[in-house]
Design a protein around this nucleic acid. Structure first.
Length: 845
DNA sequence: AGCACGCCGACT
DNA sequence: GTCGGCGTGCTC
């Protein structure tokens, strides 16, 4: 029997029939995507890279990013519906999604973690459960008795009509943790009700403006108005001022644009109430405009035509030439060789070609100095992405990149997450910097590597810049894969500083040390100060002393959460843990034996500052480290003071090594070089070399030859010889041989696995099992450890480390990572190890 | 990450 | 006897 119909049913169009599903990225550390169903009538609203709101689990409402749209219904479960669409255009672009996937893969973390790190908090809608008094509730007629706590809540909620509280608020008000019970009970009694409140946290900056009501923009009407206000001098004043500032007749649009209300009300001669009266009477009308937090400079882009020196021009041309055949070029230029001008020139060229540019800098190098300089050249096309920015500002940069308003972004590590889709150039300045690598939390990414991958995806060129390139990077240029341009000449003809090593051991034996100063360093400081020149002293440890000790019983205060001694901070009069933040008052007497003989051992920036103030009372000493720059503008203040020569000596940690150009600094002192060299890590020498060269670069600029004094107990160490001659190549050759011999990057890849557990034996057992599982899956010699790190307990977790060394090859690496993940899962599935945390750090630094 | 369900100690 | 602690598992 035939079932064919010979009449045509109205053919449903394909679009009507399709049931769409969306795979979404939840901002949570979950290993996979979740599939939701698109409400039929909203099929045309799904945007890949757009945000949607979904119900996740029983209670949570989350916003997430659509990663894929398809028609395959999940087989094993019923998909829930997407509740709402937030965006009609992607907030995350396709190239970004591709990059984020690569990051999750490469750094062994989840897409959710990447998204979490990438999106400014304000772009992540937050779900807040709020409670409100039930509309039918009345205190008099309430039939249920209320507990004391319930009563308290009701009182707060009754304070004003429609007042609502978040759970966090409730917790604070009641000052207990188990407030859910109270809320539940109040809901059962119909006293309150609960609602989910999803709010877009980004709030645009709004300015109140006023303008003349349009019917007065006509001579006759205005004259009449003047006559009417003749008896109201205050209002007349305001009106006159307005007309003065806004040429209503000359420019029809001028009145429409209006004037900032604040400019009328804040004037001392004008009365704010007169302004309001005018508004009330309909003479002026008030309106809001959304303005940018980044002031749009009205001035046209200043054409700053600085000229490149001959060496700079040659270097720039070489870079451009190499870009013809290579995607990545290293610009190796000594400090002060003028790399920034070359960058600016290249950025300009890239912009002229219509592409976007990302310029990455380490956090401490992204100073107001450099931003101002770039602003002057690129004006409103420049976006700045700094970690100290507020979230609203970050969203503005994000949206500015999306809309095309910002063509160049200068930013720190996290700027690699911005939604570029048409990059033509990425600059990674100070590419060797370890601060490009994020340690905690996941994704543990290196912005330099991410930048290289992003450039690769978008067909952009990458320029890496450094005075002391990382061994890995230099190796690539040696292997011919990346281009190399060397810039040796210092800009402005200043020669390289003279470097002198001073033997602290010898001086100590001769009893000639003044605290931690050798006579050589001290007299040189005095000499420079007498010449009205400035001095930078580098000590890579903050605080006053790394620990204190009781002279009578030997007691040393330790952190109660970590396996470290507490550092003494004199100004705060505190003992502090640099790992978990625990702090306590400095004891007056030893809690173990009651002795008052507590002495400090070792030294940090604070002690150097203190000692110097005592030894050279005439000098104006300032300290710059994490402790003195925590407050918002203190960093700028310290820099400004030093620049204006209000201070003569700057004592600091790594902060003094980066991005600062001071013309008058003629001496740099490294107080304790040994503490930088002796570090249990294969990168110790590289780091030390870089640090010494970078600090030395601060000495002598603008024609003055500087001097560097390095204090060390062992001047014979091989590294000094290379530092003194500023011989990067020799350092590199020495280092690369070591790396090859011992199988370290760039010859091998390192993945460090850390097992954490509150119980030391459990941590050890879990690490042993993990090692076994790894060995079973990888080459035996690829797995090293487990071993407790030097600081074996942090924040109450005992640590065990396993190091995996792998061949560089991509396929090997990828396979190995999945093997490692498997091994981790095996351990985590064991009952005893459920509480263990296992963290993988790919390419640790 | 939260949040719910589920099994062992100090209280009405 | 219960309340409530957190350990374990799940979320489309």
């Amino acid at each position: 029997m035939s079932l064919t119909f010979d009449f045509a049913l109205p053919e449903p169009t394909a679009a009507d029939r399709v049931t769409l599903f969306a795979d979404v990225i939840l901002p949570l550390p979950l290993p996979k995507l979740y599939t939701y169903r698109v409400p039929f009538e909203l099929n045309d609203q799904v945007v890949i890279g757009g945000r949607v709101i979904v119900q996740f689990g029983a209670k949570k409402t989350l916003s997430c990013i659509v990663a894929a749209v398809h028609e395959t219904p999940p087989k094993l479960y019923q998909a829930k519906y997407i509740l709402e669409f937030i965006d009609d255009a992607p907030v995350v672009t396709q190239p970004q999604l591709k990059l984020f996937r690569w990051m999750a893969d490469y750094y062994m973390c989840t897409l959710g973690e990447v998204i979490n790190a990438a999106l400014p908090a304000a772009l992540k809608l937050s779900s807040e459960s709020r409670i409100q008094l039930h509309p039918a509730f009345s205190a008099e007629e309430n039939p249920y008795p209320l507990s004391e706590q319930e009563q308290k809540l009701v009182e707060v909620l009754s304070l004003e009509e429609g007042k609502s509280l978040t759970f966090t608020d409730v917790g604070e008000i009641l000052a207990i943790n188990s407030f859910h019970k109270v809320i539940k009970s109040l809901m059962q009694k119909d006293v309150i009700f609960l609602f989910e409140h999803l709010s877009d946290k980004y709030s645009p900056k709004v300015v109140k403006k006023v303008r003349l009501a349009h019917h007065f923009v006509e001579e006759a009407a205005l004259e009449e108005l003047f006559a009417r206000l003749a008896t109201k001098p205050k209002q007349l004043d305001v009106l006159m001022r307005y007309l003065q500032r806004v040429p209503v007749y000359q420019d029809v649009h001028a009145n429409h644009r209006g004037l900032e209300k604040a400019s009328l009300t804040s004037s001392p001669h004008l009365s704010p109430s007169a302004v309001n009266t005018l508004i009330k009477n309909g003479v002026l009308e008030q309106f809001d405009v959304i303005v940018s937090r980044f002031p749009l400079d009205d001035e046209p882009e200043a054409k700053i035509n600085f000229t490149l020196s001959e060496a700079q021009t040659a270097a720039r041309d070489s870079v451009l030439n190499l870009f013809g055949e290579k995607d990545i070029v290293l610009l190796h230029g000594v400090t002060g060789a003028g790399k920034t001008e070359i960058y600016i020139d290249l950025i300009r060229k890239a912009l002229d070609g219509g592409g976007q540019v990302l310029y990455l800098l380490p956090e401490i190098a992204l100073t107001a100095q450099i931003v101002t300089r770039l602003m002057r050249v690129f004006g409103t096309r420049l976006g700045v992405y700094h970690s100290k920015f507020s979230d609203n500002e970050r969203v503005e940069v994000w949206n500015g990149v999306l809309s095309g308003r910002f063509q160049v972004v200068v930013g720190v590590r996290s700027a690699v997450f911005l939604p570029f889709d048409n990059l033509s150039l990425i600059i990674v300045d100070e590419e060797h910097e370890s601060s490009y690598k994020q340690y905690e939390p996941a994704p543990r990414y290196n912005a330099r590597e991410v930048a290289l991958m992003m450039a690769n995806f978008q067909g952009a060129k990458t320029l890496l810049g450094s005075a002391t390139p990382s061994v890995e990077t230099y190796y690539q240029t040696r292997a011919g894969r990346w281009g190399l341009v060397t810039l040796t000449k210092r800009f402005g003809e200043a020669g390289l500083p003279e470097i002198e090593l001073v033997d602290t051991r010898k001086q100590r034996e001769a009893k000639k040390m003044h605290n931690h100063f050798t006579p050589e360093l001290l007299s040189e400081i005095e000499r420079k100060l007498a010449l009205k020149e400035q001095v930078i002293l580098f000590q890579n440890r903050r605080g006053y002393s790394p620990f204190i000790s009781c002279l009578d019983c030997g007691w040393i205060p330790k952190c109660k959460n970590c396996a470290v001694s507490l550092s003494y901070h004199k100004h705060a009069h505190e003992l502090r843990c640099h790992y978990c933040g625990y702090h306590d008052r400095m004891p007056v007497e030893c809690p173990a034996c009651g002795s008052r003989n507590l002495k400090t051992v070792g030294f940090g920036t604070e002690k150097i500052e203190d000692d110097l103030k005592v030894m050279l009372p005439a000098a104006n000493v300032q300290r710059m480290d994490l402790d003195t720059t925590r407050a918002k503008n203190s960093y700028q203040q310290i820099i400004a003071d030093f620049e204006n020569q209000a201070t003569n000596v700057l004592v600091g940690t790594q902060m003094v090594t980066k991005g600062l150009d001071f013309a008058n600094v003629s001496l740099v002192g490294i107080i304790n070089a040994d503490s930088i060299i002796h570090y249990p890590d294969f990168r110790a020498h590289e780091r030390a070399f870089q640090m010494f060269v970078q600090v030395s670069g601060r000495a002598g600029r603008k024609g003055k030859k500087g001097k560097v004094i390095i204090q060390t107990a062992d001047p014979q160490q091989v590294i000094f010889d290379k530092v003194i001659r500023n011989d990067y190549l020799e350092f590199y050759e020495y280092e690369i041989t070591q790396r090859r011999e011992y199988g370290f990057p760039p010859f091998m890849r390192v993945i460090r696995l850390t097992v954490k557990h509150v119980d030391q034996p459990v941590a050890e057992q879990a690490a042993i099992l993990l090692t076994q599982e790894l060995v079973a899956r990888l080459r035996r010699e690829a797995v090293l450890g487990p071993e407790a790190p030097y600081i074996f307990r942090i924040r109450n977790f005992y640590l065990q480390e396993i190091t995996v060394k792998l061949d560089r090859e991509h396929t090997v690496l990828k396979h190995a990572k999945s093997q490692i993940q498997e091994a981790i899962n095996v351990v985590k599935d064991q009952k005893d190890f459920k509480q263990a945390r296992i963290v993988a750090d790919v390419d640790p630094m």
